[in-house]
Design a protein around this nucleic acid. Structure first.
Lengths: 114, 114
DNA sequence: GGTATATACCTCTGAGTCCTAGGTAACGCA
DNA sequence: TGCGTTACCTAGGACTCAGAGGTATATACC
């Protein structure tokens, strides 16, 4: 339970990683910073969640990794979306829309419509 | 991971239970059926998730329980939102809006705005 | 040359959530 | 009597996330 800031994350981290990689290959650190910046720090991506998620997505064949050098001249593992990953992104994105819409319905439906 | 149908639920079950009870007291079975009907079965509420969640919310003092008789003339435990529960509902609802908005931003922002 | 900061990677472990699978019981109807 | 529905419950395992810790290198500053 704890505080609200981590309450709802389940599953969406994978989805956001996939989405971020759909634009261009990126390394873990960069993915985290991008998501945080993009959401004005509403979403904070912890490394203890990020790296296991990345490894899991790689094991599932949704992304592939390759060592490279960053613009800061540092060694980093660049992840790239696979074809399977693109398909998963599309289906997960669609399901997220359905899911979020359903939750909104519950949160906004008035008792009268029961 | 598994299938998409249970992918995103974390935390939102509590929120939806709280919201359902904000209209009127209800029993577990009724809450589950209402959420499913309200979302056209997009969200399926499993009993193995529902009852533990209800007990947890009760332990936290967000809802209180009382035995009664349903319209079907059966014994059932009716749950009612407490004052603390109402406050929690308000803050969780607000955070859900922030969270869902942030996820949408990631899913819809184009690479150009990076 | 030494140190701090930022960049970049990783894993272990605990806490928490959800589901599967099982069980109990009573009502109404055929 | 048996069946379907309503209504409750828990034990166990799978999984996810976060906190805390660790490694290493480039650059900037002193």
């Amino acid at each position: 339970m704890a505080d609200a800031s981590t309450e709802f994350l389940k599953g969406t981290l994978d989805l956001m990683i996939l989405k971020t990689l759909s634009w261009a290959p990126a390394h873990g650190y960069g993915i985290a910073r991008w998501i945080e910046r993009c959401t004005d720090d509403v979403l904070e991506v912890e490394e203890g969640s990020l790296y296991p998620a990345l490894h899991k997505l790689e094991d599932e064949g949704l992304i592939t990794a390759e060592w490279g050098i960053t613009e800061h001249n540092r060694r980093a593992k660049f992840y790239r979306l696979t074809t399977v990953g693109k398909r998963r992104l599309a289906s997960s994105h669609a399901y997220w829309a359905r899911f979020a819409g359903a939750v909104s319905k519950v949160l906004e439906t008035s008792p009268a419509s029961a």
